[in-house]
Simulated assay, not measured.
Amino acid sequence: MGVDGAVDADTRWYAEHLVAALRALARPVLVADWRGFWRPRSLRFEFGRDDPDTYYDSWLDVPGVYRELLAPLGEPSGRRWVESLYDPQTDRASRAPRQDAPDDAVLVFAGSFLLKDDVRWGFDAVVHLTTSDAAIRRRVPAEDAARVLGGWNRYLAEDSPADAAAVVLRCEDPRHPAELLRE
């Protein structure tokens, strides 16, 4: 399962609640975050720290996500996964160990752009958090707002994530989500 949203804090908050609900149902849960699969800073910032197109196109190491996380967990049994490839604090490889995953485990992955064409097929279901530009500006550091909004609005225009998501939640205030019902 993916939790897709523009604001990292929101996707992590909802993912934590989803993890708690799944664990309450006695399901084994694996947790990962898109920051653990970012490309190195030198590649992310190749065209500047604030470039929204690079943010949208190149921050996530999509081949790494598939190779180390989604493809292995898509196997029916004998699954081994890596929870991260990258440590954003040190800007180095995380060296996370390969771990066994129970056959009935559920992955909860929090991040942005999870319903892009090159990413979405790896998830059985994605919860999409829709957030106004004003709410994003309130919850993202001012120095990141132009990059996040530019990349996010491109994502909305090109990928129509609300149409592809299993569930869409309006997330103006994460403490009070509203499910958007579609026909």
Rank of each mutant, 00 (worst) to 15 (best):
S132K: 02
G2F: 02
R170F: 01
P88D: 12
V148C: 07
V167L: 14
L25D: 15
Y66A: 09
W34V: 14
V19M: 08
R95C: 13
S42R: 15
V108D: 00
Y55F: 15
G36M: 06
M1A: 08
V29T: 10
V31E: 08
A157K: 11
P40S: 10
L180R: 07
V7Q: 00
R154W: 05
R44E: 09
A146Y: 01
D144P: 00
H17G: 15
P28A: 12
W59T: 09
T90D: 10
V7D: 02
R154V: 03
R120S: 10
G151K: 02
V119E: 04
R154A: 04
H176I: 07
R80H: 08
R175K: 09
G48Q: 06
L25M: 15
A15S: 10
V127L: 11
E75A: 15
R139A: 03
V29E: 06
R49H: 13
R138V: 03
D10T: 06
L149E: 00
G150F: 02
P88S: 13
V82K: 02
W59S: 13
E143S: 09
P72S: 05
D100Y: 01
R67C: 07
R95A: 13
E46Q: 15
A145S: 09
G78R: 11
V19Y: 08
A15G: 15
P63K: 09
S77Q: 14
R67D: 09
D50L: 11
D61T: 07
Y56Q: 05
D53H: 12
F113R: 02
W13L: 05
P88Y: 12
H128M: 03
D33N: 11
A105R: 03
H128T: 05
F113K: 01
D124F: 07
F109E: 01
D8F: 12
L107T: 00
W34A: 14
A20R: 15
R12I: 11
A71N: 14
R41S: 15
D100P: 03
A96G: 03
T130V: 06
A6Y: 04
D118N: 15
A21I: 10
T131Y: 02
W121D: 14
E158I: 02
